[in-house]
Amino acid sequence: MKPKTQRLFLLVLAIVAVLGAVLLAMSALKDQAAYFYAPADVAREGAPQGRNVRIGGMVRQGSIRRNADGVTIDFVVRDDSPHVINVRYRGIVPDLFREESGVVAEGRFQESGLFVADEILAKHDENYMPPQLDVKKGEHKSESLK
């Protein structure tokens, strides 16, 4: 074998080996590196107690309720599964926090199953479009249009 061919062969072999190692590592990290628990994950594995976790999903349509004190809100996080998580948060939410939009909340589960959040982050989807188009598609209801 010519040295050039030998180097090519060795290098391709090394790349395949490293790639295999990475795939194995990624599959091992599948759950550990997840940024948040979805309602389906919580239903499957049980609510993690006594430590700070992040949960995420969609804010269910019509579920945001503002409490009498004016700064505490309750809402329901859903995903594609039939399971939901009830969340309570006291504070200011990001502008993009709205119903039928993505949300990530950090906090703790209470024994009752209620999730009390210290921080709310908004997660938007991969769609970008002008406002006029959105009204036409009717995917998101805008308060100002009523």
């Binding site: 940024y35 979805a38 995420g56 997660k123 991969e126 970008y128």
Partner: peptide
């Protein structure tokens, strides 16, 4: 592959 705060591919 993971659920992330960053949205999916556009």
């Amino acid at each position: 592959y993971w659920n992330t705060l960053h949205q999916g591919q556009s």
